[in-house]
Each structure stands twice: as structure tokens, then as C-alpha cells.
Amino acid sequence: MSALLRATGVGKRFGGLSALGEVSFSIPQGAIYGLIGPNGAGKTTFFNLLTGIYTPDEGGFEFDGAPLPGAPHAVCARGIARTFQNIRLFASMTALENVMVGRHVRTRAGLFSAIFRPGSERAEERAIRARALELLDFVGIAHRAQEVSRHLSYGDQRRLEVARALATEPRLLALDEPAAGMNSTETAALGVLLQKIRAKGVTILLIEHDVKLVMGLCDRVAVLEYGRLIAEGPPEQVQHDPRVIEAYLGAEAGA
């Protein structure tokens, strides 16, 4: 399998402090790839660099053989969509509208077709709506389509964020702690959903605290500690790496 995303020597400093340094790894096409590490290890910083919200001070990314653009919207257009650790939905819009916004980057209608509404615009709007409903159904919250997203349950909000991200037709779906705040049943259901998404051909990058979920789901795992990559490989191998046990799993076991 070829690499879909290649991070080369990525580094970021905040006011002289190095938040992330020399992080290099590749995510194979079609994988579910885990990024783990203790709190403050730089996982979310990595996400923000990847999705263009921050600019790396060193290194960079190659996506599907070409360097990634800098602006977040351009990154999304290239095929990387994300969710947020603390959910960032368009809170006052309905679930359906949220997903319809996700279709923006793959549709065309501009100012003039909005005003004059030619047939092409109406067809496009119909397609946007249909695709959005389809995606809500895919993540299992079609019955909530008309609900204001702020009123959805926590688990449903996470699912909605996934549906909104999928609406942009990503080749790489980057999920920032999607299981945070979920109970074990919801987490299990999330695992099933992620498998379903992968089966559609979407590669997944997963930041997760829930080690069990990561180990059970991911094909490969990268471990960050203090902004440095300390291990990378298949879960069973990483799981037995003494540095990882010390830095992360050990601390967890001791707690």
C-alpha cells in the first residue's frame, strides 16, 4: 500500500517553547491510523498543523504525492476533513444544514445562480440535500435531521461532526478524540462506524485517549510524548515498546 499522507520533520514552536519537533511518519492508503500520547504531547497541535490552522515552523506534509497547501479551506479541498476535540458544530443550525455546509467545497453555485436560480442551481441544491440526508443516515442520525444541532445528545453531536466532515468527500478523515465523553456502548458503536467509513475507502487518522479503542481498531499507531515521536508501528508492537509503556501505558496502569 502506498502512503496517502507523509509528515516529514514537522515542528512547531509557541513563543520559544517547542510544542512539536521532528515528527515524521506516513499513513498508508486505506488505513486506520492512531495518534496517541499523554495529555499535552502535541497531538492536537499536530492536527492543527495538518489542517492548516497553524503553519509549521519546520518540515511539512505531502498528501497523495504533492505538498499540502497552507490555508485550511484549501487543505479541505485537497481531501482532508477533520472533527474537533471540543465539538465545533454550527450550533444553531439544524443537523441537516450542518452537513449541507460540508457539501460547499464540492459544489459550485455562486452569487448569480443563487439570485437567478437556473435549473442547474436547483438541481445542485437537491443533490446537496439528498447527499446530506444520506450521510446523516450513514452515521445513524437521520431521524434527527431537523433538530437544532445544539440540542442533540453528545454522542449524536460527535456523529454529526463526522457526517459533516464526510460531506466534504475527504480521502483522509482526521478525528480528534471522537470517543471523548462517550460511554462504552457508544464507543463500541463508534468503532463500528469507523470500520464502515474505512470500508468506503476513506483513510482515517485518529487521535484518541481510549487506548483500548485505538489498539483494537488501528492498523498502525504513532506515539507522541513531549512533542516528540517515540514509537511508530503496528499496535501489538507499540504496545510492547518499553518507552511507550513508561511514557503512556505505564502511567495509565499505575494510576
Binding site: I53, R88, S92, M93, R164
Partner: peptide, 19 residues
């Protein structure tokens, strides 16, 4: 719709591909 999204959460809007 895109304007409404920007009004509600600009960072999320950018991450969803809105220029």
C-alpha cells in the same frame, strides 16, 4: 448557508472548506 456557518463558527467553517 456558508455565511451562516461563518457567523456561527469561523474556524469550523474554514476547516469545512469554506474560503
Amino acid at each position: 448557508r456558508a455565511w451562516a456557518a461563518i457567523r456561527e463558527d469561523e474556524i469550523a467553517a474554514r476547516a469545512m472548506g469554506l474560503n
